[in-house]
Design a protein around this nucleic acid. Structure first.
Length: 268
DNA sequence: AGCCAGGCCCAAC
DNA sequence: GTTGGGCATGGC
């Protein structure tokens, strides 16, 4: 599948900015991974997006356009953010190809419960182990088997002992309890986010931003505290949140991603 | 050895 | 409503 005339998109920025954990960089700069039940290899060459999938079904284009958020004008968003705040310009130019993926809520909920007080390489390993041991197969692709994350019903049926090989630590209990809540309710909703076990303010903001298109969400983790301290001389989360709301408005979450990426790979 | 990682839970104010 | 200790795990 080919999609032409792509702007404001860089695979490293999109897949390695900390919003997703199931994509791996290949030596040629493409990324291979899975979204929902769909494995794919994605590359951008001279403004043309190449999406290779197992069936190579052209009718999947609508899914990938939505997942990759291709129909949003990030050029306009970047200009507006830079107009509102003189400091963020260098972070935007560093991560100019970031787009906010539209991920599935349940997967995002599981992923960010696992993310808490954890580091990105280990989060990726934990999620991969969980999928491989307890998720349904998503088929073979480019010589490798892919697995979905386990459903709420499957995860709710497991015990901490079952999950021990995944090395999730104390997060295993959070996942089991939250899975039971989601199984009971039948879906993951924005209103319910803060009620899930293992979901505090930061994780809820990540799920809202990465799965529910709440682009005003402004997740603050340890990296964000560092970058806001360095660039804006702020030292507490409340001030950071009100500053983001006043300055970045509806696009606070997108601003947050430029700042996070800038801190992790440039300042950090 | 101790600190850190996309923090949260829970008890004690 | 805010604050602080405890927390599984693994890399540095």
């Amino acid at each position: 599948m080919i999609i032409e005339e792509i702007k404001d998109f860089h695979t490293d920025h999109v897949f390695d900015c900390g919003q997703c954990f199931r994509w791996e960089r290949e030596e040629d700069g493409s990324y291979t991974g899975i979204a929902g039940h769909r494995p794919a290899n994605i590359s951008l060459r001279e403004g043309t997006l190449h999406i290779e999938t197992p069936g190579d079904d052209p009718e999947e284009e609508a899914f990938w356009r939505d997942y990759l958020d291709l129909d949003r004008d990030y050029g306009k968003i970047k200009r507006e953010l830079a107009e509102r705040d003189p400091v963020i310009g260098k972070a935007i130019s560093y991560g100019e190809g970031i787009r906010i993926l539209h991920q599935e809520p349940w997967e995002t909920l599981v992923s960010f419960i696992i993310s808490s007080n954890n580091n990105i390489p280990r989060i990726k390993k934990n999620i991969g182990d969980l999928a491989e041991r307890f998720g349904e197969t998503a088929g073979e692709f480019r010589g490798k088997m892919y697995y979905r994350l386990p459903s709420p019903a499957v995860l709710a049926s497991l015990t901490k002992e079952d999950l021990a090989p995944c090395r999730l630590g104390y997060r295993a209990g959070y996942l089991i309890k939250t899975a039971a809540m989601v199984k009971e309710a039948g879906e993951v909703t924005y209103q319910a986010l803060s009620s899930y076990v293992g979901v505090g303010p930061k994780v809820a903001d990540c799920i809202a931003l990465f799965a529910m298109r709440r682009y005003d969400s402004f997740p603050i983790d340890t990296w964000m505290e560092k970058v806001m301290g360095q660039l804006y001389a702020m030292d507490n989360k409340r001030a950071m949140l009100s500053f983001a709301r006043e300055t970045f408005g509806d696009y606070g979450g997108i601003a947050q991603q430029y700042l996070f990426y800038y801190m992790r790979y440039h300042l950090g």
